[in-house]
């Protein structure tokens, strides 16, 4: 059974050639997007506004005590 023939830009193209071209284009697009994508940003939060070394030590100790309770 003869397969259908598509006409693209005036040329006869067979279905399997069209499939290969479509898959190839999609792969290229995906790879291209991944290459241009910015690296994932780390979640940000406002900086700790501790005004003294004592406050910084308190923050560290308190957060550590909460971790130990988990």
């Amino acid at each position: 059974m003869a397969g259908a023939v598509y006409h693209v830009f005036g040329r006869a193209v067979k279905p399997h050639q069209l499939s290969i071209a479509t898959l190839g284009s999609t792969a290229a697009l995906v790879i291209g997007l991944n290459l241009t994508k910015k690296p994932a940003e780390k979640p940000t939060s406002p900086p700790i506004n501790a005004a003294s070394p004592e406050e910084e030590d308190f923050v560290k100790d308190f957060m550590k005590s909460l971790e130990e309770k988990k």
Binding site: A50, A51, E55, F58, V59, F62, M63, L66
Partner: peptide
């Protein structure tokens, strides 16, 4: 309880 900063930090965290 604690200093005012410490009171606030616990409040904010908890």
């Amino acid at each position: 309880k604690g200093t005012n900063y410490e009171i606030g930090f616990k409040h904010g965290t908890l």
